[in-house]
Design a protein around this nucleic acid. Sequence first.
DNA 1: CCAGAATCTTGACACTTGTCAAGATCGAAT
DNA 2: ATTCGATCTTGACAAGTGTCAAGATTCTGG
Lengths: 212, 212
Amino acid sequence: MARQVTGAARRVAEAAEALRDEKFNARRIELAEAALETLGELGFARTSLREIAQNSAFTHGVFHYYFSDKLDLICCCVRHYKAKCVTRYDEVVATATSRDELTEGFLAKLAATLQNEARMHRLWYDLRSQAMFEAAFRKDVLEIDKSLEAMIWRIASRYAELGGKRPASSPGALYALFDGLFQSALLKHLAGDKRAVPELLDEVRRLLPTVC
Amino acid sequence: MARQVTGAARRVAEAAEALRDEKFNARRIELAEAALETLGELGFARTSLREIAQNSAFTHGVFHYYFSDKLDLICCCVRHYKAKCVTRYDEVVATATSRDELTEGFLAKLAATLQNEARMHRLWYDLRSQAMFEAAFRKDVLEIDKSLEAMIWRIASRYAELGGKRPASSPGALYALFDGLFQSALLKHLAGDKRAVPELLDEVRRLLPTVC
DNA sequence: CCAGAATCTTGACACTTGTCAAGATCGAAT
DNA sequence: ATTCGATCTTGACAAGTGTCAAGATTCTGG
């Protein structure tokens, strides 16, 4: 019986610990989300922990309590950012019943995110560049890049399927193409070029039938 | 005659000033080149003027003498970097007499620069991302991006010409594609992935005939 | 050769940075 | 209600930052 009690006690203890862990992790994500605000505004180079804290409801000490250091915090930010990103077009892919529908749904989301979430996108490009210098970022960044490539591939595959064809290039090349176009459009958009978004849409509209 | 003397004196003075200017500018470029060493090693975020000075033969005060501030220095670096970059493939384009020759020449240079000048390339991607945050960089960065696009276009046009065809996509899309592929390969290469370079070459070899 | 300008060195300034530790506050189990 | 651990605040520290100014040095025209 002693053994059963011990077992039950251990289970309770484990459950409590799991709860604490979950709470701890939820807090980390809260903090990461707050940090993303400032990071998106200022970029990696100009963002300090104190700046992050001041633009949030937290004090700078809390960040040190939940993260071992600055890199740890930013890694967590990147990982969290990823989860929200890679499902952006999934609904469109799932519901579209024709090439046109898929095209228009994709383009609409593309334009919307380029305009409304420009700060998050530029942060992603910033951090991906940082990964070229800072080894600590590389694992997460490469993983996200793979997810984004898969995301584009899902769109292209479905588009090809709806036309009874198969994508004409590799996932890597397709991702490179769309990512390059998006990055360039983002820069122009941030520079105040009103034509950036429509030109991107035109380009993608023209390109889709030729690559899939 | 007084007028002639004045005119001559003015011309002499102007020549002297031009000489000073030239010398001044040559020094700026020397300093920018030294700064590029450290920038390529550490990236924009982690590079300070003192670090730059310590890794060079100059004292940190000189940089302040020749540049109004840090941004001015880095803008100069970027502009200088550009000049060296955009002519990389021109000789290949000028001398190649067949599609194969152009392909192989292009791929050889591509592989060489990816491996030997990885630090400069990652700095370029870093600064291009910075331009999304820092307006002061945008003009120069957009200009360089245009030059690179034109560089790719020259290659593609010549390649198409040698096959009696015309490029199948716009300059922007072509640049996006190659830039995206290069950026991805660079990241993998820096992460220690031995397959990064050969995979890039394979991809480009496969792609060239389909886009031109 | 020498005065004045150009160039460079040095050291200081005010400020920001990441990190940490001591203590306050909170929450929950006993 | 008390106690103890988790959570948070606050303030401090040393190191590093961009900037600048005063003076040393070098260059150059006369």
